[in-house]
Amino acid sequence: MLRTTTRTAAVAVAALLAVSGCASSQPARLDPTLDADEHSLLAEPEATPEATFEAPDDEHAVVGELAEDFPPDLVPLPSDAQILVSSAEPDGDDGTTTLSLNLRTSLAADELMADLREALTKAGFTEAPVATPPTGVAAESTFARESGEVLTVAVLDRDGVRTLTLGGRVVVP
Rank of each mutant, 00 (worst) to 15 (best):
V62L: 10
V63R: 13
G64A: 09
E65G: 12
L66R: 06
E68P: 00
E68I: 03
D69V: 02
F70T: 01
P71H: 07
P72Y: 02
L74M: 05
V75Y: 02
V75I: 15
P76E: 05
P76W: 05
P78N: 04
P78H: 04
S79I: 00
S79A: 15
D80W: 06
D80C: 08
Q82R: 12
I83Y: 02
I83R: 00
L84Y: 06
L84W: 13
V85C: 03
V85A: 13
V85Q: 08
V85R: 04
S86W: 08
S86P: 01
S87G: 13
E89F: 02
P90V: 06
D93V: 11
D93L: 13
D93T: 14
D93I: 06
D94K: 02
T96S: 09
T97F: 04
T97D: 10
T98N: 12
L99A: 13
L99K: 03
L101M: 13
L101I: 13
N102V: 15
N102W: 07
L103D: 12
L103K: 04
R104G: 02
R104F: 03
T105C: 03
T105Y: 01
T105D: 02
S106L: 11
A108P: 00
A108G: 10
A109W: 04
A109P: 00
E111Q: 13
L112F: 07
A114T: 07
L116Q: 14
L116G: 01
R117Q: 15
R117D: 14
E118A: 13
A119M: 06
A119N: 07
L120A: 08
K122R: 13
A123K: 07
A123M: 01
A123T: 01
A123G: 05
A123W: 02
G124Q: 11
G124N: 05
T126I: 07
A128Y: 08
V130Q: 15
T132K: 14
T132L: 12
T132C: 02
P133I: 10
P134L: 14
G136K: 08
G136V: 06
V137Y: 10
V137A: 11
V137N: 08
A138G: 08
A139H: 11
A139R: 13
E140D: 11
S141Q: 04
T142C: 03
